[in-house]
Design a protein around this nucleic acid. Structure first.
Lengths: 199, 199
DNA sequence: GACGGCATGTAACCAGTTACATGATTAT
DNA sequence: ATAATCATGTAACTGGTTACATGCCGTC
């Protein structure tokens, strides 16, 4: 009954989160906004489903908590088996991060078949989007980790993961700028009509 | 029959690839090693399936090509409808790139529950892996795009996408180094026993 | 009275992966 | 012999998303 096909990081992300603090599915979904969420997230439906499976596996134990006014919540805690599973999992080699699957990248690649001006606007939109996210990350960085050189243990690990998020966002933005510079150079240099390859 | 639920970039990645050069499913799978593949890839099975759907939609037309010795191949070309679909698709806003789903990130976040030395080795392994990939990208960059400032049209777009791949890999490697520095600092500073939270 | 937050869930679906099968050719 | 490359496919499954349903509370 334990031939789990070793490709399940959401389970383990939840184990980490629950190890630090017990919580309900709903809370876990919200918690994913912070730290781990930059590297792994899920919808609440997915979390509920996985949580159930984990309970069946004996990795977590759920306990219904009645609440005044609000509906009951089911608070999950990590069991000894769950703690063991987490330790076992960290020791095994990590999957390489899969391909990016950036739709914007494909559209840039396809630029010859569309309007360059519109594409630039779209790149700018994404640049702004990620700029906002980066700002949030930087804010968290300053607020929660003012002296990163003195961090140890879990706060350090949280910080390092956050740094990953910062780097990803910053890198993406730089790339957007490079793309914009490239596209605009050709736009202004050669003001040809709409479609380069007119069918 | 055409209420396609607007979340299908693989189709369009294939349309781009086939617009440049007709090819079989097998060839497309191999082509994804270059350029687009850095931002969107798929297994051959997935490509065969999608190709069939695209043929049903009338976006591509397949034509069996008998070959001496080798089995027949089915070469696909983009139809007028496919070309139109591609143009339509570029004009609509692109999905934001989803969360990273990096297992390594989750493991770093979970470092408190495992062995720090082993984790460092694992981070180094990934660093080497991406270092290799980066080297390949840089080689392609130098070989195929020696004068990027003078590029226009599709080669420029190819180059810009490749630059994205380069940035992603370089950023990842820098992050690995930052993680290693952080983890090693605590390792040597405080040589405490295995489990911080022994439960 | 409508909306948003808290809290959980079901059902249907989709994209993608893995495993396997087939069958010929060429190279070791 | 055996393995690798070319070439296509079926079947089963998994992880994840979307849509929808329920119900109570507070507030605008």
């Amino acid at each position: 009954m334990l031939d789990y096909p070793h490709r399940m990081a959401l389970e383990h992300a939840l184990l980490v989160s629950l190890s630090e603090r017990a919580g309900s599915g709903y809370e876990l979904a919200r918690r994913f906004d912070k730290s781990i969420g930059y590297f792994w997230s899920a919808t609440h439906q997915q979390i509920y489903r996985v949580l159930k499976r984990m309970e069946d596996n004996g990795w977590v134990t759920g306990r219904a908590v009645p609440q005044a006014g609000r509906p009951d919540k089911k608070v999950y805690s990590v069991s000894d088996a769950g703690h063991g599973e987490l330790t076992r999992w960290i020791a095994e080699p990590a999957e390489d991060v899969g391909p990016l699957r950036s739709e914007l990248g494909v559209k840039i690649r396809a630029a010859a078949y569309g309007d360059l001006g519109e594409l630039c606007a779209e790149v700018e939109r994404h640049r702004a989007l990620h700029g906002q996210r980066l700002e949030v990350y930087r804010l968290i960085e300053k607020r929660d980790f003012p002296a990163p050189d003195r961090l140890t243990g879990t706060p350090l690990y949280q910080y390092l993961v956050l740094r990953g998020g910062v780097r990803v966002e910053a890198g993406f933005i730089e790339w957007c700028d490079e793309v914009l510079a490239g596209l605009r150079r050709t736009e202004t240099t050669a003001p040809q009509p709409d479609s380069p390859a007119e069918r």
